[in-house]
């Protein structure tokens, strides 16, 4: 009797969260899948087309170009974010006043909107008035101010610089929480065992922060796979759509070409790919932990 009551009481406590998930996650997800099987346009109309949009997506060269561009962007930026985040977390691990200030400074850009920070960096990279071009010319790295967004690799580099500045503090904070949860006595035991600083980092801190690193990696990789604002504002897809990311291409189809049904199908494909990637990463981590 008591157990049954407890079950209902438990459900009662959970209901606000369940309701939230149902309204803001499950309902839109079901809607997305349903729309993806229609030829619905943003202007209205459309009919049920079963899996035609999915079949079309597999032969859509632009979608796969944007997809592989996004994968490349993710594969480049994620290690940079993780390594820098880890090093910054290591540097600011002790709870000294200066470290706390440093943490605050590095974390500050995280609270700025991505669109605002992207606009800021557009100006910093600007050919005419950009501080970066000026600085590079002054130190002799380049002869004259350059246009950063007319070539795909330069555009991606600029975006990576801006996004690293913007989000590196987030990874740092997650990894810092992992590092600070390591018992002091374990670190001290390794000091007495004769481990040097880098031996401690490699043999103790790194493996014991693995879960936090995985979490930071997942959040960062998923965020990068869903990159849109920074490319929309900084490169605009230029040159010739070479810096279209998957989400940018989905946006183009849904809101520029009005193909809402097709855009939804692309979203579902992207979601499945990201979920599979995340699941693979978690599985690999678990296997590593049990080995």
């Amino acid at each position: 009797m008591l157990a049954t009551n407890n079950k209902y009481v438990g459900l009662l406590y959970l209901s606000p969260a369940l309701l939230f998930v149902a309204v803001f996650v499950l309902y839109p997800l079901v809607q997305l899948v349903m729309i993806s099987m229609t030829s619905e346009s943003l202007l209205g109309g459309g009919e049920f087309v079963w899996f035609d949009n999915y079949l079309l997506a597999f032969s859509d060269r632009s979608f796969w170009t944007s997809f592989w561009f996004t994968v490349r962007y993710t594969l480049i930026i994620t290690p940079i974010l993780m390594v820098l985040g880890f090093l910054l977390a290591l540097l600011t691990m002790q709870n000294r006043a200066l470290n706390q200030i440093a943490r605050g400074v590095v974390f500050l850009p995280v609270v700025i909107g991505l669109a605002s920070s992207s606009l800021l960096w557009v100006w910093l990279f600007d050919q005419q008035v950009g501080l970066l071009n000026k600085a590079l010319v002054d130190v002799g790295a380049i002869e004259q101010p350059m246009v950063w967004f007319n070539r795909a690799h330069l555009g991606m580099t600029a975006v990576i610089v801006s996004v690293v500045w913007k989000v590196v503090g987030f990874g740092m904070i997650i990894m810092l929480s992992g590092m600070q949860s390591i018992s002091h006595e374990i670190v001290e035991a390794s000091m007495i065992d004769g481990a040097t600083y880098w031996q401690r980092v490699r043999r103790i801190i790194l493996p014991l922060s693995a879960r936090a690193i995985l979490l930071a990696t997942l959040i960062s990789a998923i965020g990068s796979m869903l990159a849109f604002d920074q490319f929309y504002l900084m490169t605009g897809g230029a040159p010739r759509g070479q810096t279209f990311t998957s989400v940018y291409w989905i946006y183009q189809n849904s809101f520029v070409y009005f193909k809402l049904g097709y855009g939804s199908a692309l979203s579902v494909i992207l979601m499945v790919v990201i979920m599979a990637g995340a699941a693979l990463q978690i599985a690999l981590q678990r296997r590593g932990e049990s080995a």
């Binding site: 006595e185 374990i186 001290e188 035991a189 000091m191 007495i192 481990a195 103790i204 014991l208």
Partner: peptide, 17 residues
């Protein structure tokens, strides 16, 4: 500590998990 020729056993054991 490593060069003091000492070994220490901690209250929490401090084993590497």
């Amino acid at each position: 500590p490593a060069k003091r020729q000492i070994s220490m056993v901690f209250q929490s054991y401090a084993l590497y998990p």
